[in-house]
């Protein structure tokens, strides 16, 4: 393991492509906006994947950490005019605190109960942040005039965060902790019987996972310049989509969430723009519908996701081209 290089050649090419991609679309803020969203979902998906894909704790409430990160950036700005850029660090840390506290409750639960527990905790936060108007401005949300008009700097910031999150997961999975995570996913009781402090390692996984979700949330506020409780704590638009990004790309793979994020954002945008205006307008109403169909297809036929079942896909495609000959 030690003499293996940290990044393979292919991975370096992917990262390099990520670096030059916005320059190719220098004159298209629209495309840059899409790239930024892809990177944001890479961070969220990677964060979820560490906790769910590698540690087996399927969280249905990642919006909790995302939202807490976003509000950590936004609240000091609202009350004391402190720059939300501090939130990129503070948001992550605050999300870790909340994640740890929620973990005290939800890590007592397993499997589907854990899923529902995380779902409920995110929903409670959503309602609370919407109701406490003295603190959060309630449903009117918090507005911030963004620092730059151009999107390129935002892209490089979120790109750096995305790469850092992937590197952190990769580092963790190469270490002893990574193997402990996998053992917890495969059989928690057996892991405990072998002397692994499962509670501790589930918490470590949660800390790293919630940190990146919190950072993504803070970035969302800095970039969008507006949040309210319904958008950042959204059950469907954040928590569920995060899961689906992981599922489509491949749970328990390093690059799965990245692939899932690209597919999710591009597919939705393809339909939202009615296939670049070529199709009739009603097609644009189908973006979420088509995404749902894709999810069903992937779970049925590619249970490992696009990255996890890549060999299977290659074989299928190969067979087809052979028979056609």
């Amino acid at each position: 393991m030690e003499n293996k290089k940290f990044f393979s050649k292919g991975e370096l090419i992917i990262i390099f492509t990520g670096l030059v991609l916005p320059l190719l679309f220098y004159f298209s803020p629209y495309a840059q906006g899409l790239l930024i969203f892809i990177m944001m979902w890479v961070v969220l998906g990677t964060s979820w994947n560490l906790l769910a894909g590698y540690t087996g704790q399927v969280s249905f409430g990642h919006a909790a950490y995302f939202g807490v990160g976003a509000y950590t950036a936004a609240l000091p700005f609202l009350h004391y005019k402190i720059s939300p850029w501090w939130g990129l660090i503070a948001g992550g840390i605050m999300a870790v605190v909340i994640g740890y506290l929620l973990g005290v409750v939800v890590f007592r639960l397993r499997g589907p109960y854990f899923a529902l527990g995380t779902l409920a905790s995110a929903e409670i936060l959503r309602i609370a942040f919407g109701e406490e108007e003295w603190l959060t401005n309630g449903h009117n949300g918090i507005l911030y005039i963004t620092t730059w008009v151009t999107k390129i700097p935002y892209y490089y910031i979120i790109f750096a965060i995305a790469v850092a999150s992937i590197v952190s997961v990769k580092l963790l999975m190469r270490r002893r902790e990574g193997y402990y995570f996998l053992s917890i996913r495969e059989d928690e009781d057996a892991a405990m019987a072998l002397g692994i402090n499962t509670k501790k390692y589930k918490n470590i996984s949660m800390i790293v996972s919630s940190f990146w979700a919190g950072v993504a949330g803070a970035f969302y506020f800095i970039y969008m310049g507006f949040i309210d409780s319904e958008t950042v704590f959204a059950l469907h638009n954040i928590s569920i989509i995060t899961i689906l990004v992981g599922i489509i790309g491949g749970v328990g793979t390093i690059w799965g969430p990245a692939v899932g994020a690209i597919i999710m954002v591009l597919l939705q945008e393809l339909f939202r723009s009615a296939i670049f205006g070529l199709a009739p307008q009603w097609v644009s109403g189908m973006h979420a519908f088509v995404f749902g169909l894709l999810v069903i297809f992937v779970i049925l036929y590619l249970p490992g996701g696009v990255v996890g079942d890549w060999e299977l896909i290659k074989k299928k495609l190969h067979l087809k081209s052979n028979t056609e000959k």
Binding site: A52, G111, L244, A288, G292
Partner: peptide
């Protein structure tokens, strides 16, 4: 599959399709 919650995730997908 890696995650035992596969069927639950499937119901999520079905739910999205029905709503949308």
């Amino acid at each position: 599959s890696i995650l035992p919650e596969n069927q639950v995730l499937m119901t999520v997908g079905i739910g999205i399709v029905l709503v949308e």
